[in-house]
Design a protein around this nucleic acid. Structure first.
Length: 135
DNA sequence: CGACTGACGGTCG
DNA sequence: ACGACCGCCAGTC
């Protein structure tokens, strides 16, 4: 066996990277329709707390075909795309189409932010999408 | 190899 | 509300 000299603990293997990417994509797909999550939360759900940037990378490189990328917003509820950009307009449109209200380019995370625990705790299992909770 | 850049987040002044 | 920093990861020049 060829002993590898660089067994640096901080070094992440390619396998680990791929796994992280896969978990991020899975976490994004797990966001129910009509709900949103921040980059940081997606990372946390994927077991990668503190690596929100990696989520951005995943969404950028990943295929936006069957990926609900529009449900991922910044921590302040705003789109990650710059104001006036096509991407932002598209995201806003998709969100509104799902019933997510966007005011001045921002979503009320207090209302639409999704957390599994919260759904289960407040409305019981199976109530992933309370939806009409009075506006 | 180092500096810069991003679909980020949080803290501090 | 705003800008400056820092931590974070991958890609590019």
């Amino acid at each position: 066996m060829v002993a590898k000299e660089r067994d640096k603990p901080a070094e992440r293997s390619d396998d680990a990277r791929a796994d992280a990417l896969a978990r991020i994509l899975a976490a994004v797909r797990a966001i129910p329709r009509g709900r949103v999550a921040s980059y940081g939360q997606v990372a946390a759900n994927a077991g990668l707390k503190g690596r929100a940037r990696l989520v951005g990378y995943a969404l950028r490189t990943g295929d936006g075909r069957a990926l609900p990328w529009h449900r991922v917003l910044r921590a302040n509820g705003a789109s990650a795309f710059p104001d006036g950009s096509a991407g932002r307009a598209e995201q806003c449109k998709r969100l509104e189409r799902e019933g997510v209200r966007v005011s001045r380019g921002r979503v009320d995370l207090g209302r639409y932010c999704w957390t599994r625990d919260l759904d289960v705790l407040l409305w019981g299992p199976g109530a992933a999408v309370p939806a009409r909770r009075r506006a």
